[in-house]
Simulated assay, not measured.
Amino acid sequence: MSDETDLKHLARCVELAAKALESGNPPFGSVLVDGTGAVKFEGHNLTADGDATQHPELAIARWAAANMTPEERVASTVYTSGEHCPMCAAAHGWVGLGRIVFASSSEQLSVWLDEMHVSPPPVATLPINTVVPGLPVEGPFPVLAEAVRKLHERYQHGASK
């Protein structure tokens, strides 16, 4: 169940998404929190240089695999401004990370992009549990999803600064 701690970490993800936007990247940000509540990794989208796999959720999965035990990974929570894409959800599942909490859903993003007359991404938008069945997932959070939508509007209209 979500609480103030979840909302605090999700708000940080939205801040990181804004930082991504300021650097010319799509607005996505993520935070890895271990079972004790300590922030272990923060990141944002870095795809502007042409590598479309530079998602923060994939970076978290790689970092966790290299720096955490399997027990630490499963006890952790990944917070993110937007629900994982299938690539990131698969990495999350393969590495054995725990719960995912997201501010906005892939379904919301698909609707927003359609409303903005933007072509859909090249990879199908799927719910995380379609890719990783049984994984604890919470989201979206309407109080933050609106802020994420506004970041995507700014990105699509070229207003990165």
Score class of each variant (00 low, 15 high):
M1S: 15
M1E: 14
M1V: 10
S2W: 10
D6A: 15
C13M: 07
E15F: 07
E15T: 09
L16S: 05
E22M: 10
S23W: 10
P27G: 01
G29L: 08
L32K: 12
V33C: 12
V39H: 00
E42M: 10
T47D: 09
A48V: 11
A52N: 06
A52E: 13
T53E: 15
Q54C: 11
P56A: 12
A59W: 00
N67S: 13
P70D: 00
E71Q: 04
E72F: 13
T77S: 04
Y79L: 04
C85F: 02
C85R: 00
C88A: 15
A90Y: 07
A90S: 15
L97P: 06
L97Y: 13
L97T: 12
I100V: 15
A103E: 00
S105Y: 01
E107F: 01
E107R: 06
Q108S: 02
S110K: 01
W112G: 03
M116F: 11
V118M: 15
S119V: 09
P120E: 14
A124F: 08
A124D: 12
L126D: 01
P127E: 12
I128T: 11
V131K: 06
V132P: 00
V132S: 02
P136Y: 14
G139I: 08
P140Y: 10
V143G: 11
R149L: 08
Y155D: 07
A159I: 10
A159T: 13
A159N: 14
K161I: 14
K161V: 13
